[in-house]
Amino acid sequence: MTEAALAQSVGSGRLAGISVTVWRAAGIVFASFVTLYVLIPIGVTIAMSFNDGSFIRFPITSWSLRWYEGFFASTRWTQALANSLVIALGTTVISTVSGILAAWTFDRYNLPLKNVIYVLIMLPLFTPGVVLGLGIAIAFGGIEIGGWSFFGSRGSVVIAHSLWAMPLVFMLMEATFRTVDRRIIEASYDLGGRPVRTFFEIVLPMVSTGVISSALFAFVISLNEFVMALFLTSRGTQTLPVLMWLSLRSAGTPELAVTAVVLATAVFACMSLVMVWYVRQLRKLGR
């Protein structure tokens, strides 16, 4: 097994015979332990979502889809799901656009105070969600524009989530832009492509994999985040994770397991779409 490779390459000395077996066994045990560790909460949740009973209790004696039916019949849950998706899409658009533009600027232009701006853009990513949620709630809680209040709106959550998603997009895209051959951009300018057209017609298609991946990251972060959302949403704009948290605090039912599965499904569906796109892209350019 895996550790055996280490043992073979390393332990060619006197104890090699014993070490190979011992290391191999240790490797298998450790790998199984980690695998089990990662899979336990996932497996438990999936199993519980098909439970027919009304309480969370093992062993599960009878199975059914009734909690799934309940989930999609309840406007409270479907409304939360809709909120989650809208907020995640908003976050994706805002953070992808602003992050890509900033990363492009850092790659192509000289700015005064470049280092300061870099730190300023990256800092929110390392700030705990409670702090960001609290800060925005206090600073902008009272703002109302013509009857529309910022606090409790989906927009406020989009902005808050962008504080994590935008630096991430920026970081990923900065690394991606660095891999682009400058000569190709120069070739476009040289052939008469103005900067804006060059950006959209040459640069963006070349880094499309980076763009799609960072958009996916932004989407997933927003979909899963709940601390900031907890601070910033009101009853009508609660996201799925927020509603789950509140339900968990009152009473846990198999319905929560269904919610967790739905949330994860949304994430993995997006990932699969991206994978399909990526494979098609490879097939088109590679071969």
Binding site: D181, R183, I184, E186, A187, S188, Y189, D190, L191, G192, G193, R194, P195, R197, E201, I202, P205, M206, S208, L285
Partner: peptide
């Protein structure tokens, strides 16, 4: 992009996501 020159680069600097025909047409379209 406002000079009437055309450069042939060391690496060719072809646009990897465009076909040969699209590569050649690019400058004309611009």
């Amino acid at each position: 992009y406002k000079r009437n020159t055309a450069t042939i680069f060391q690496s060719g600097a072809l646009f990897p996501h465009k076909t040969v025909a699209e590569n050649i047409a690019y400058g004309l379209r611009m």
